[in-house]
Nucleic acid binder design. Structure first.
Lengths: 165, 165
DNA sequence: TATGAAAAGGGGTTGCT
DNA sequence: AGCAACCCCTTTTCATA
């Protein structure tokens, strides 16, 4: 397991992150102005946030409609009961499918929740029959098409970390 | 409705997007080298992609564990049948809840799928009772905690747009 | 009209105080 | 922590095909 415990973030860190979560292209000087601090301080904080892995990555977010990936689907995948060894196998297999942009292990009876993007419903049908259901140990797949994403953000609501109870 | 039809993207656009989806901080010169093109050409393409909205935004992705938002939950929300006017109300209300980072309208009987991040299970309990279930028209909420995110990327698998059939 | 080169400007980065 | 110099990258302009 990687170290993923909360870092100690003060108000300044949080305000910097708030801005960066909206726009990484903001000049350091402007961030400094907005958070009422200095260029040097903000720059050093940003380095710490990046090196400490608080900022995992800085990326371009692409509009899925604009690139012909109009269909977004959530697929609940249930695995056969007696083959728990198949879980890593499933993850390896699913990692090779670039249409799968999220894969969550859920508590409860549904084993995985996948978020998938494809060009069309036909493509999704193909994907399910020829890719997903072919993976060993997959027992049941139930799919829900997302008709619209009224909220779809990468922005996390960061607050000052509470001291551990 | 905003124009969201696929743009015509050639191989060069796609290769640029592939790099930018991983790292927006790459210098134009280096992108040019990697895609075997020139600085000027790549720069102009990037401008078009940004202005055309293909690149929706350029953001910092924050590790939710590192900022104390260790609990990620998917909530299926079912609305009361006879109050379809409540849908926009629901969306407005949910937009005011920063813990909700995604809200999808699904086909079928479940009306909404929400992705929510909170510090702890206790916070989620509070969130459901005092926020989510208080919204008018909400009939039923069923929640699944994500135990782990083995895939969690913003990267879309972009291919050359097929001509419309 | 699209490209390449090169100049000009701004911002990131570093070292010093 | 602040300041300032430096260097690199972005952005613009201009010349060319």
């Amino acid at each position: 397991m990687a170290e993923q415990h909360p870092e100690t973030l003060d108000t300044l860190d949080i305000r910097i992150l708030d801005l960066l979560q909206d726009d990484v292209t903001l000049p350091v000087a402007e961030i400094a102005e907005r958070v009422a601090s200095s260029k040097t301080v903000v720059w050093r904080r940003m380095q710490r946030l990046i090196e400490g892995g608080v900022i995992r990555e800085r990326v371009a977010i692409v509009d899925h409609h604009k690139v012909g990936l109009g269909i977004m689907v959530f697929a609940h995948v249930k695995m056969t009961r007696h083959n728990r060894d198949a879980l890593p196998t499933f993850l390896d297999a699913v990692r090779k499918l670039p249409a799968v942009i999220e894969c969550h292990t859920l508590m409860g009876d549904v084993d995985f929740l996948l978020k998938i993007v494809v060009p069309s419903v036909q493509d999704y049908e193909y994907f399910v029959w020829n890719k997903l259901s072919q993976i060993e140990g997959v027992q049941e797949i139930s799919s829900s098409i997302s008709m619209s994403q009224s909220i779809n953000t990468t922005r996390l609501p960061i607050r000052a970390s509470k001291p551990r109870a």
